[in-house]
């Protein structure tokens, strides 16, 4: 009996080893381990054995069953792995092919610059003030210390609609309006972005419509050193931490003292090149301490309050920052242009 069992085991193991597909294994399982299989049959004859032999043969029979089952399982597992591998092999793709495009639009480069600047100043406690693009002569000029007879107010330079109404030539009227709303009580801390219009022929460096962003702070004890500190923060944020800034005295009717701000030329690092007209410096900003007349006209007591204001052309920033050579690109909206300004650059 013992021999018979060992013989069966060998036979079954042999067949299982030689099996080439899952079905064969199943057949082997049914054939050897099934209720009608030879091992069961052998065990039926156990009654004839002595009490001593019975447990031995029983144990052996179990061992034989286990060995066969284990072999079949092992073989079955091998088949399954092979099947999975075959499937994986058949499913292989070329991962270098491009992905399905996601439609993603871009922010206009001017908006991008304006938002960056807004966020910088919001972080310093400013709010964003906006105003009309069609303005009264009063807010655009008179309230800013540019009376009717002022030479800077040539009809030729502005788009007038009537004698008293025009397309604003700067965002400064927003400052005048905001100051007026404060009714002589500070502090005022605003940043004013917006479109402005000048009667210029469009060419590579001129545009009849462009964008400005201006800042205004009014409070007690605001000083020119505050303006300088603020502009340093601003210039470094916009043009890079490694830029140097230089303040030069200048003149604007609405500020006194007035200042112009140069940044060191990025192209030549201050050595002098054609971009900076061989000076090493590029003029980027104008500003100054708010003129007492402007404060008074807006209802602020210039003995108690002082303030600073500054303004910059957004296109100018973009042109310097990205090296754009023609201001008209910002308004023709060539997709090949618009698509270039989407990454978040490292500072």
């Amino acid at each position: 009996m013992q021999e018979r069992l060992l013989e069966l085991q060998q036979e079954a193991l042999q067949k299982a080893t030689e099996a080439t597909e899952l079905k064969e294994l199943n057949d082997i399982r049914v054939a050897y381990l099934g209720k009608k299989g030879p091992i069961t049959e052998v065990l039926r004859g156990m009654g004839k054995l002595s009490a001593e032999e019975r447990p031995k043969i029983g144990a052996l029979a179990n061992d034989v069953r286990a060995a066969i089952a284990s072999k079949i399982e092992e073989k079955q597992h091998a088949f399954e792995t092979a099947a999975v591998n075959a499937q994986l092999a058949s499913e292989k793709i070329d991962v270098t092919l491009p992905g399905r495009p996601v439609n993603k639009g871009n922010q206009h480069p001017l908006t991008r610059i304006v938002e960056d600047i807004e966020d910088l100043f919001i972080g310093m406690g400013y709010t964003v003030a906006e105003g009309p693009e069609v303005e009264s002569d009063y807010y655009n000029f008179e309230a800013l210390n540019l009376p009717k007879s002022h030479p800077a107010r040539d009809m030729q330079d502005s788009f007038y609609i009537t004698d008293e109404i025009l397309m604003r030539t700067h965002t400064s009227p927003v400052q005048a309006r905001t100051m007026e709303m404060h009714k002589g009580i500070g502090p005022v801390k605003i940043i004013c972005p917006g479109k402005v219009y000048r009667r210029d022929n469009d060419d590579a460096t001129h545009s009849h419509q462009f964008m400005q962003i201006e800042g205004l702070v009014i409070d007690e004890n605001i000083s020119m050193s505050d303006l300088k500190g603020t502009l340093e923060v601003f210039a470094k944020k916009v043009f890079g931490q490694d830029r140097e800034i230089r303040l030069r005295p200048s003149f604007f009717p609405f500020t006194e003292p007035s200042v112009e701000i140069d940044i060191s030329c990025k192209i030549c690092s201050g050595k002098g090149c054609s971009v900076c007209k061989h000076t090493g410096w590029i003029e980027v900003l104008g500003g100054g301490m708010v003129h007492p007349n402007v404060l008074e006209m807006a209802g602020f007591d210039s003995k108690t309050y002082s303030g600073f204001a500054f303004g910059i052309g957004v296109e100018r920033i973009a042109m310097l920052k990205y090296g754009v050579d023609d201001i008209r690109h910002f308004y023709t909206n060539d997709l090949r242009f618009l698509k270039q300004f989407h990454t978040h650059e490292s500072e």
């Binding site: 406690g125 605001i222 050193s225 505050d226 300088k228 500190g229 923060v233 005295p249 006194e256 003292p257």
Partner: peptide, 30 residues
């Protein structure tokens, strides 16, 4: 203010310190 400017420009804008406004602060927001 005109005299202040004269003083400032001959003192040298470079020599003016750089500070940030202090005083009552309101939250900056959109």
């Amino acid at each position: 203010a005109d005299l202040v400017e004269e003083a400032a420009r001959l003192y040298g804008y470079d020599n003016i310190p750089a500070t940030l406004p202090i005083g009552e602060t309101a939250p900056g927001r959109l």
